[in-house]
Design a protein around this nucleic acid. Structure first.
Lengths: 192, 192
DNA sequence: CGAAAATTTGACATGACTCAACTGGAGTGG
DNA sequence: CCACTCCAGTTGAGTCATGTCAAATTTTCG
């Protein structure tokens, strides 16, 4: 069941069939429609979420109504409003589906049990967090060092599967520019 | 030995005395002078580094000579050029001491052995990476959403121990503004 | 004390933002 | 299937925050 899920876990740690069965028993399968929210700002994030199919974004809206995208997620990625999940505090972020999506959810208590019962999963998440931390550091670096145009090009190169299926508007909010500016940047590339 | 080190580990996972002895046996103590490099760009990062005393920065220099600070580290923090360490590839970053410092180093093979021999340390690092990932996400968010002045104030509030002992220039390079701009921002605050 | 580095300040340039209007495609309901 | 609405995307004009270049001043530290 859920071969993508098994494949992703297997990239970092090997599980016997019966161990994998045990792991999956902690997760709940759920589907969401496009534009539906997996989590809304102000609520406590109850699930760590693995995306089997579809596409989501994690974003915030500030007091002036501006949105900023913290993270995208597509097949094979984990998404969460992590701070809310870990500390059980109201989330600053919304998680919204950009496409009809299928996901796996696990609650915090179940995840803790999973770590205890299957130490290999503690290892898996150690490696996962290491990797997403590196990605986040890389993103900080591009935000510090590169122009909007360069960030856009880098993004398309690094996440072509994401860039192709997500509206430019969302990409702009991820890159930290206004949709208008991204539009101008794109037209400059085209004319070159 | 190294009570700070033990204290930090104990925050996330409890170790018996003999386990702690085993853990420490994998680490090497080393001192560095101010301005000395723990790692230089182009070299492979050989150590994950825990800071017992002192202050360091992880930064890069681009082709036009501009510097950007990826991370600071003070007592109780881990620092590394993680991508280089994990993949054993040349580092894009320098790690430089801003003060005379005392650190603990562990090599990648030893860290792997440590994970195997003391599963509690795999847990410790899982939680550590989870935390630094959340910090990094928070930083991305402030870079996307806030003005330079707001970022500066937030930084001072969040890391007062760092802001107090680090030259403004370094803080500017961490916040993603030029030292000149930060100077102007500071003078605006002062006149208010 | 003296050299090197950090900080400040001024003048000017510019990338990106804001506000606003217009275009065109997607989705919805009659 | 068409009319209508709603957004995403585009484009223009003007503004603003921050960068660049350069020089003066202060601080640090050997």
């Amino acid at each position: 069941m859920w071969p993508l899920f098994r494949e992703k876990i297997s990239q970092h740690t090997l599980l016997a069939d019966e161990e994998y069965e045990l792991v999956t028993s902690f997760f709940k399968y759920k589907t969401y429609k496009k534009r539906q929210f997996i989590l809304q700002e102000g609520n406590i994030s109850k699930y760590e979420t693995f995306i089997l199919k579809g596409c989501v974004r994690v974003y915030d809206v500030n007091d002036t109504g501006q949105e900023h995208v913290l993270q995208f997620g597509i097949e094979g990625w984990w998404v969460n409003s992590l701070h809310s999940f870990i500390n059980e505090t109201p989330s600053d972020y919304d998680i919204e589906c950009l496409e009809n999506s299928e996901v796996l959810h696990i609650t915090k208590p179940d995840l803790e049990k999973l770590y205890k019962q299957v130490p290999a999963m503690e290892r898996y998440f150690r490696i996962l967090f290491q990797e997403v931390y590196m990605s986040s550091q890389h993103r900080v670096c591009t935000l510090l060092a590169k122009s909007a145009g360069k960030r856009y090009r880098d993004f398309l190169k690094l996440y072509p599967q994401v860039g192709e299926r997500i509206p430019d508007r969302q990409v702009a909010l991820y890159l930290g520019v206004t949709p208008q500016s991204l539009s101008r940047i794109r037209s400059q590339f085209a004319g070159k």
